[in-house]
């Protein structure tokens, strides 16, 4: 699916890189532990998280994460959004919980980074 599909499924608001909504996403990883993201995510996946600090953007950058969804309307500050914009990492925010966010995206065909297939 593409990022605009994810935006629509989650009724999300785009905080950075609106122009990148055509990016392709096939895999997702969700965590609030950035070291877990560094250890277990794969390149070009979606990160779903409740953390909103600048380290999330740095983590996404070094782990080559394509885009980030913040859950439960947790919004990063303007410096974090600016860093994401500079690093060309789209940011979205949804009102949904982590569980509902993952559930809805899974139902629509998005799969994990860890290879479990259905």
């Amino acid at each position: 699916m593409i990022l605009s599909d994810i935006r629509d499924i989650l009724k999300a608001v785009v905080l950075a890189r609106k122009e990148d909504m055509g990016m392709q996403i096939e895999r997702a990883y969700c965590a609030d532990l950035m070291s877990d993201v560094l250890a277990f995510s794969i390149s070009h996946s979606l990160l779903i998280t409740g953390l909103t600090n600048t380290q999330v953007i740095r983590t996404a950058e070094v782990a080559t994460i394509t885009a980030i969804v913040f859950i439960q309307n947790k919004r990063p500050d303007i410096q974090t959004i600016a860093l994401a914009d500079e690093k060309k990492i789209p940011l979205l925010v949804t009102d949904l919980s982590m569980f509902d966010t993952c559930g809805l995206l899974f139902e629509k065909g998005l799969r994990s980074c860890n290879g479990l297939e259905f």
Partner: peptide, 15 residues
Amino acid sequence: EMGFGSGMGLPNIKR
């Protein structure tokens, strides 16, 4: 609370 300090630092470097 910042998402670090979960004891994965050196293991991640090794990995």
